[in-house]
Design a binder for these strands. Structure first.
Length: 298
RNA sequence: GGCGCCAUGGCCAAGCGGCUAAGGCAGAGCUCUGCAAAAGCUUGAUCCCCGGUUCAAAUCCGGGUGGCGCCU
C-alpha cells in the first residue's frame, strides 16, 4: 500500500529503528491470519526486519477478546523488556490500549454459552429487551445504571458474569483496576477531518484494487469465520455483496462510510485517554523526533 | 404552446384540515473493562413563493417558480 497512507505503521517502524524497539500491535483485526488486505496488515517490506508481535497469529475461525489481548500483550511486553529493547505499541483498537494504559487485570470468567444463547433468545422476543434489563436491575443494579437498556450485548454480558461467578460485574470492574506496572507515553495522530476522510476513501479504493473481494471469497469458502473476525470492517460488507444483497457500488460506499465513522469513533475514544499527546499526522519526521526526545528526556 | 403529475431538514420519506410536522440514512457530539473495525446514546425543518377559503392548512382553492412525463 501507498506509504503515504500508513500513518501508524510507518511511524511504528521508524520509532523502532530509532529507539531499538519492537512493535506490538494493538489492532483487533490484524491478529487474524489470512485477513491481510482488509485489515491493511503491514507487509514484510514495510516492517523492514523490525519484529512485529500480535499480528497474524489467530485463525479466522477463532474468537478473540480484550482479556486474551491483555494477557498476550503483557507477556510480549515483558519479553521485549527482558531483552533490553523498547516495546512500541501501535494500533487503533482503543479498548485494547486502554487495558494496558489503565492496568486492568481481568479475572478468569468461564463462558456459559448455553446461558447467553438463552438470553439472546429472550432479547428477540417482544419486550425481551425490557425483560433482560429488569433481570439485570435485580441482580446488579449498579451495572444497570451504567449500561443502557437497549445495549443488549452489554446487558447480557453483565448477566452472564453474574450467572457464572455469582458476583456483580460492577464489583469485579472495580477490583480489576490495578496500578500500571510500567511507565509509558501515549500518542495520538491527529488529522484534519477532511484530510482524514479523504485518506480513508483512497485507502478503501486501494484495498479493492488489491483484491479485497477475492480475499473475502477465499476466507468464507475456507472457514466458518468467527464472530469477531466477521466484524472486520470491509469483510461483512463484501460478504453482503457476494450474497447478492448489495450492488458493488453500494458495497464500496458502505465500506467507505463505515470506515469514516470508525475513524470518528476512534477520535472520540482517544480524546479521553489519560496523558495522550497529540501529534500532527502530516509530518512523520517531526512525530518521530518529538517522541524520541520525550523518551530520552524520561 | 397544451395537458397531467410532483415540490416536506444534506439525501430518502410519512403525513391527505386540528396535540409541540413520523421514521431511515448521512453529518455532528458522545458512552465504553471479556464480539470493540463491535454495541449503544444524544442531536436538526414550520413543510418552494404569493394570495385566498377556514375558528384552524404542510394538508383545500387560485396564481407564480422549478422538476418529471405525455401531447402538438
Amino acid at each position: 500500500m501507498d506509504l503515504q497512507l500508513r500513518g501508524k505503521t510507518s511511524l511504528g517502524v521508524m520509532l523502532a529503528q530509532k529507539l531499538n524497539g519492537e512493535v506490538i500491535s494493538s489492532d483487533s483485526m490484524q491478529i487474524y491470519k489470512e485477513m491481510n488486505i482488509g485489515t491493511a496488515k503491514p507487509t514484510k517490506e514495510e516492517i523492514k526486519n523490525i519484529p512485529h508481535h500480535l499480528i497474524d497469529f489467530v485463525s479466522p475461525d477463532e474468537e478473540y477478546n480484550v482479556s486474551k489481548y491483555k494477557e498476550d500483550a503483557l507477556k510480549t511486553i515483558n519479553d521485549i523488556l527482558s531483552r533490553g529493547k523498547v516495546p512500541i505499541i501501535v494500533g487503533g483498537t482503543g479498548l485494547y490500549i486502554n487495558t494496558l494504559v489503565n492496568g486492568i487485570e481481568f479475572s478468569d470468567i468461564e463462558k456459559d454459552e448455553e446461558y447467553t444463547s438463552y438470553l439472546e433468545k429472550i432479547s428477540k422476543k417482544e419486550d425481551g429487551v425490557d425483560t433482560l434489563y429488569k433481570m439485570l436491575q435485580e441482580v446488579d443494579p449498579e451495572s444497570a445504571k451504567v449500561i443502557e437498556k437497549n445495549n443488549v450485548r452489554r446487558v447480557i454480558r453483565a448477566l452472564e458474569i453474574f450467572k457464572v461467578t455469582g458476583r456483580k460485574k460492577s464489583d469485579l470492574d472495580i477490583e480489576s483496576r490495578k496500578e500500571t506496572p510500567y511507565e509509558y507515553l501515549v500518542y495520538g495522530i491527529n488529522w484534519d477531518r477532511e484530510e482524514l476522510y479523504d485518506r480513508i476513501n483512497r485507502r478503501v479504493d486501494i484495498m479493492l484494487n488489491d483484491g479485497l473481494v477475492d480475499e473475502v471469497k477465499k476466507l468464507s469458502n475456507k472457514y466458518n469465520i468467527s464472530k469477531t473476525a466477521l466484524q472486520g470492517l470491509g469483510y461483512k460488507e463484501v460478504i453482503e455483496y457476494l450474497e447478492g444483497k448489495a450492488s458493488y457500488e453500494e458495497m464500496v460506499e458502505k465500506i467507505k462510510t463505515e470506515s469514516r465513522r470508525y475513524a470518528k469513533r476512534q477520535m472520540t475514544w482517544f480524546k479521553k485517554t489519560p496523558g495522550i499527546i497529540w501529534l500532527d499526522g502530516k509530518d512523520v519526521n517531526s512525530m518521530v523526533e518529538k517522541i524520541t526526545n520525550d523518551y530520552i528526556g524520561e
